[in-house]
Design a protein around this nucleic acid. Structure first.
Lengths: 201, 201
DNA sequence: AGGGTAACGAAACGGCAGGACCGTTTAACC
DNA sequence: GGTTAAACGGTCCTGCCGTTTCGTTACCCT
């Protein structure tokens, strides 16, 4: 049993091929959604042999899983405004702008759909959001330390609460969130956190 | 241009075939997810000719869209407990139990994934949630009338806020919601509504 | 800098999803 | 109950997705 292709000689051409294929995969996912995905089409766009794509990724979901690993590596740093509400607003705005962007929004919908169909992709998606939530949780922890939120508040739960309504509208009703929706999301999470809804133990 | 098959003679055998196929489709969706869906397999399970499934529904997404129409018709009546928080709890618990049910939960994930790939399916899904939100919005409207929530509160927004975190966890992280999550969802939506986050105009 | 081999790429193959044909059943209307 | 055609269902087939094969390129190590 040999290692996966691309792991022994990951540099040079191999890296270029990976980058080109992932870029093409992102484009096609954003344009068409993941079920109409033809690996041969991606190979053509990436100017790469069809055989290579099948050998290295095997299936559509495998390709999406690798794309998610790539996306998780590009983490956007959090902003700090001095108050929880401001920080949550910044986070909500970031999520909102991401989902409202034609390419990014469609890409996220496609990736989440893919994760619902394949366990490996689901694991990659879970990891992606873990990274994102970990990035922003310190804002809430600092707020607890400053006394703005009750002690014992689950920081990660608050961060997830900000994203939830924005994702929910997009996924279940196709509603692209606007700035007002971001503001509501931030204020709602803040109000709930102040009320002690996310206090554990 | 002739009408869609199944619309001119919707009774008798046609209805039985539709019911059998939709049931089989739900089973397969819940078991395997929608991308591995083979219409011939569904036909076999439903003990129906393969040709019939292809002729009437054409594609996997078309079948899912019809399944959603069928699901929307079976609306579960809302409960009324006398207080907003109680009503929101009842709603959250209903959603939580639905998503936590192995068959129903998997079915919802699959259906949402299908909606991300096809516009007709997305429209059917939107309609499904419109029906559900309309069913529960009166609870919030009555609460506003009773003075429990501020005037001008967007009732539908509050109802959606209850579901959002439960769906968000399931779709992005594969977290099956438990009773505690339902309680948090209800209390969070309530706290935000009381704080006037969902007041419009 | 040169060899060994990991990784790529073109072309040919094959299995199966999805569709076409046509005879059979039966719902709808009188 | 008889007639009409809408809808079903078995069979065959065609096109495409994914795979295999084998020759070529170029990355990595010494």
């Amino acid at each position: 049993m040999s290692a996966e292709p691309g792991t022994v000689r990951p540099g040079g051409r191999t890296a270029r091929v990976r980058a080109a294929v992932l870029r093409a995969a992102g484009d096609v996912l954003a344009e068409q959604g993941f079920d109409q995905l033809d690996l041969a089409d991606i190979a053509r766009r990436a100017e790469v042999g069809k055989t290579t794509v099948y050998r290295r990724w095997g299936s559509v979901t495998g390709l999406v899983a690798d794309l998610l690993v790539d996306m998780a590596e590009q983490s956007s740093p959090r902003e700090e405004t001095g108050s929880v509400l401001g920080d949550l607003r910044a986070n909500a705005s970031l999520v909102q702008r991401t989902l409202a962007d034609p390419r990014q929004g469609a890409l996220f919908r496609a990736v989440i759909a893919a994760a619902a169909c394949d366990e490996r992709t689901a694991a990659a998606l879970r990891r992606f959001y873990e990274v994102r939530v970990d990035e922003w949780a310190p804002c809430v922890e600092q707020a607890v330390a400053r006394g703005e939120l009750p002690a014992g508040t689950d920081a990660r739960a608050v961060v997830r609460a900000v994203s939830a309504p924005l994702y929910y509208g997009l996924l279940t009703s196709g509603v692209v969130p606007d700035a007002a929706a971001a503001e509501r999301a931030a204020r709602a999470a803040h109000a709930a956190a102040v009320a002690g809804v996310y206090v554990t133990e």
